[in-house]
Amino acid sequence: MTVDHFWALVEQGRARAHDPSDAEEVAERTRQALTSLAAAGVAELNQPLHDLMAASYRVDLWGAAYQLNGGCSDDGFEYFRGWLLTQGREVFERVVADPDALAGLPAVREAAEEALDLECEDMFGVVADAYHALTGTYDLPATEGRYPELGQFWDFDDDDEFRRRLPRLAGLLGE
Protein backbone atom coordinates (compact mmCIF):
# COMPACT_ATOMS: atom_id res chain seq x y z
CA MET A 1 0.00 0.00 0.00
CA THR A 2 1.22 3.46 -0.86
CA VAL A 3 0.63 7.08 0.07
CA ASP A 4 -1.80 7.19 -2.87
CA HIS A 5 -3.82 4.36 -1.29
CA PHE A 6 -3.86 6.21 2.02
CA TRP A 7 -5.09 9.42 0.37
CA ALA A 8 -7.79 7.50 -1.52
CA LEU A 9 -9.13 6.24 1.81
CA VAL A 10 -9.04 9.74 3.31
CA GLU A 11 -10.97 11.06 0.32
CA GLN A 12 -13.44 8.21 0.75
CA GLY A 13 -13.82 9.24 4.40
CA ARG A 14 -14.31 12.88 3.43
CA ALA A 15 -16.93 11.90 0.83
CA ARG A 16 -18.86 9.81 3.35
CA ALA A 17 -18.78 12.46 6.08
CA HIS A 18 -21.97 14.46 6.48
CA ASP A 19 -19.73 17.46 7.16
CA PRO A 20 -16.25 17.15 5.60
CA SER A 21 -15.09 20.10 7.70
CA ASP A 22 -15.69 18.00 10.84
CA ALA A 23 -12.25 16.47 11.34
CA GLU A 24 -13.45 13.93 13.90
CA GLU A 25 -16.13 12.67 11.52
CA VAL A 26 -13.65 12.46 8.65
CA ALA A 27 -11.28 10.48 10.88
CA GLU A 28 -14.08 8.08 11.87
CA ARG A 29 -15.22 7.61 8.27
CA THR A 30 -11.61 7.02 7.22
CA ARG A 31 -11.22 4.45 10.00
CA GLN A 32 -14.38 2.73 8.74
CA ALA A 33 -12.98 2.68 5.21
CA LEU A 34 -9.76 1.17 6.53
CA THR A 35 -11.64 -1.59 8.34
CA SER A 36 -13.08 -2.71 5.01
CA LEU A 37 -9.56 -3.82 4.08
CA ALA A 38 -7.79 -6.96 5.21
CA ALA A 39 -5.69 -6.48 8.34
CA ALA A 40 -2.48 -6.92 6.32
CA GLY A 41 -3.50 -4.08 4.02
CA VAL A 42 -4.22 -1.81 6.98
CA ALA A 43 -0.83 -2.69 8.47
CA GLU A 44 0.84 -1.71 5.18
CA LEU A 45 -0.69 1.78 5.49
CA ASN A 46 1.19 2.46 8.71
CA GLN A 47 4.30 3.42 6.72
CA PRO A 48 2.54 5.87 4.37
CA LEU A 49 0.90 7.56 7.38
CA HIS A 50 4.29 7.81 9.07
CA ASP A 51 5.79 9.26 5.87
CA LEU A 52 3.08 11.94 5.68
CA MET A 53 3.53 12.85 9.33
CA ALA A 54 7.29 13.07 8.76
CA ALA A 55 6.82 15.25 5.67
CA SER A 56 4.75 17.68 7.72
CA TYR A 57 7.21 17.78 10.64
CA ARG A 58 8.41 21.30 9.95
CA VAL A 59 9.20 24.13 12.33
CA ASP A 60 7.33 26.71 10.23
CA LEU A 61 4.19 24.55 10.32
CA TRP A 62 4.65 24.11 14.07
CA GLY A 63 4.81 27.89 14.44
CA ALA A 64 1.57 28.23 12.49
CA ALA A 65 -0.12 25.58 14.66
CA TYR A 66 1.17 27.33 17.78
CA GLN A 67 -0.36 30.62 16.72
CA LEU A 68 -3.64 29.12 15.53
CA ASN A 69 -4.21 26.98 18.60
CA GLY A 70 -2.94 29.41 21.22
CA GLY A 71 0.02 27.15 21.98
CA CYS A 72 1.15 23.78 20.69
CA SER A 73 2.99 21.02 22.57
CA ASP A 74 4.66 18.06 20.86
CA ASP A 75 1.42 16.10 21.11
CA GLY A 76 -0.59 19.12 20.02
CA PHE A 77 1.54 19.37 16.89
CA GLU A 78 0.86 15.70 16.10
CA TYR A 79 -2.89 16.32 16.51
CA PHE A 80 -2.73 19.49 14.39
CA ARG A 81 -1.09 17.46 11.63
CA GLY A 82 -3.81 14.85 12.11
CA TRP A 83 -6.35 17.63 11.50
CA LEU A 84 -4.39 18.67 8.42
CA LEU A 85 -4.64 15.12 7.04
CA THR A 86 -8.45 15.30 7.33
CA GLN A 87 -8.44 18.26 4.96
CA GLY A 88 -7.38 16.03 2.06
CA ARG A 89 -4.31 15.64 -0.08
CA GLU A 90 -4.44 18.90 -2.03
CA VAL A 91 -4.75 21.03 1.11
CA PHE A 92 -2.19 18.96 3.01
CA GLU A 93 0.43 19.25 0.27
CA ARG A 94 -0.21 22.96 -0.27
CA VAL A 95 0.09 23.75 3.44
CA VAL A 96 3.17 21.59 3.97
CA ALA A 97 4.83 23.44 1.08
CA ASP A 98 3.67 26.84 2.40
CA PRO A 99 2.26 26.95 5.95
CA ASP A 100 1.14 30.55 5.35
CA ALA A 101 -1.44 29.08 2.93
CA LEU A 102 -3.42 28.10 6.03
CA ALA A 103 -4.73 31.68 6.06
CA GLY A 104 -6.73 30.99 2.89
CA LEU A 105 -8.57 27.92 4.21
CA PRO A 106 -12.21 28.44 5.21
CA ALA A 107 -11.80 26.04 8.17
CA VAL A 108 -8.88 28.09 9.47
CA ARG A 109 -10.78 31.36 9.03
CA GLU A 110 -13.72 29.91 10.96
CA ALA A 111 -11.45 28.56 13.70
CA ALA A 112 -9.77 31.97 14.02
CA GLU A 113 -13.14 33.75 14.34
CA GLU A 114 -14.49 31.29 16.90
CA ALA A 115 -11.21 30.58 18.76
CA LEU A 116 -11.39 26.86 17.94
CA ASP A 117 -8.38 24.56 18.07
CA LEU A 118 -7.49 22.70 14.90
CA GLU A 119 -6.66 19.22 16.13
CA CYS A 120 -7.64 15.65 15.38
CA GLU A 121 -5.94 13.06 17.54
CA ASP A 122 -8.08 10.31 16.02
CA MET A 123 -6.67 10.90 12.54
CA PHE A 124 -3.13 10.60 13.86
CA GLY A 125 -4.04 7.11 15.09
CA VAL A 126 -6.49 6.07 12.37
CA VAL A 127 -4.38 3.19 11.02
CA ALA A 128 -3.64 1.79 14.49
CA ASP A 129 -7.30 2.05 15.49
CA ALA A 130 -8.48 0.29 12.34
CA TYR A 131 -5.88 -2.42 12.81
CA HIS A 132 -6.99 -2.87 16.41
CA ALA A 133 -10.63 -3.12 15.32
CA LEU A 134 -9.68 -5.91 12.91
CA THR A 135 -7.18 -7.83 15.02
CA GLY A 136 -7.67 -6.89 18.66
CA THR A 137 -4.05 -5.74 18.87
CA TYR A 138 -2.08 -2.57 18.18
CA ASP A 139 1.04 -4.55 17.18
CA LEU A 140 1.66 -2.91 13.82
CA PRO A 141 4.94 -3.43 11.98
CA ALA A 142 7.57 -0.82 12.78
CA THR A 143 7.87 2.07 10.40
CA GLU A 144 11.11 2.95 8.67
CA GLY A 145 12.70 6.36 8.78
CA ARG A 146 12.80 9.02 11.41
CA TYR A 147 11.23 12.42 11.49
CA PRO A 148 13.55 14.98 9.91
CA GLU A 149 15.41 17.61 11.86
CA LEU A 150 13.09 20.56 12.46
CA GLY A 151 15.70 23.20 11.89
CA GLN A 152 16.07 26.41 13.81
CA PHE A 153 13.19 27.17 16.16
CA TRP A 154 12.04 30.73 16.47
CA ASP A 155 10.16 32.35 19.31
CA PHE A 156 6.56 31.49 18.44
CA ASP A 157 5.39 34.20 20.88
CA ASP A 158 7.34 36.93 19.06
CA ASP A 159 4.63 38.77 17.09
CA ASP A 160 7.13 40.57 14.84
CA GLU A 161 8.82 37.29 13.91
CA PHE A 162 5.43 35.66 13.33
CA ARG A 163 4.41 38.51 10.96
CA ARG A 164 7.72 38.21 9.13
CA ARG A 165 7.55 34.42 8.68
CA LEU A 166 3.79 33.92 8.17
CA PRO A 167 2.38 37.29 7.09
CA ARG A 168 -1.01 36.11 5.76
CA LEU A 169 -1.67 34.02 8.83
CA ALA A 170 -0.58 36.86 11.11
CA GLY A 171 -2.97 39.17 9.25
CA LEU A 172 -5.81 36.72 9.70
CA LEU A 173 -5.14 36.42 13.42
CA GLY A 174 -4.80 40.18 13.80
CA GLU A 175 -1.16 40.10 14.87
Rank of each mutant, 00 (worst) to 15 (best):
S36V: 06
E149F: 09
T143M: 13
D139G: 03
A33Q: 02
F124G: 08
A43D: 04
T143Y: 07
Y66H: 03
R29C: 05
E119T: 05
D129P: 10
A133W: 08
A64C: 08
D98S: 03
S21G: 04
G125S: 13
D157G: 15
A43G: 09
T86F: 02
L169R: 11
D129S: 15
L116H: 14
F92W: 12
V59S: 08
A107V: 06
D155S: 10
A8N: 08
R14T: 00
F92C: 09
Q32D: 14
H5A: 14
A142F: 11
G136Y: 13
G174P: 09
L34D: 01
E144L: 12
R14P: 00
V42H: 05
P141T: 04
T30I: 12
A23G: 00
S21Q: 14
R58H: 11
E110N: 13
R163M: 10
D74C: 03
A64T: 08
H18M: 09
G63Y: 02
G70C: 11
S56I: 00
D117G: 12
G125M: 07
A55F: 06
G171A: 03
A54H: 13
L140R: 08
L118T: 02
E149W: 13
D139M: 11
Q47L: 05
A43E: 03
Q12R: 14
A128P: 09
W62K: 07
E90A: 15
G104S: 12
G88S: 01
A101H: 07
A15V: 10
E119K: 01
A115S: 06
R163A: 13
D158C: 10
G76W: 05
E175D: 07
A130Y: 01
R146C: 12
E149K: 05
T35K: 15
T86E: 00
Y57S: 06
D155T: 13
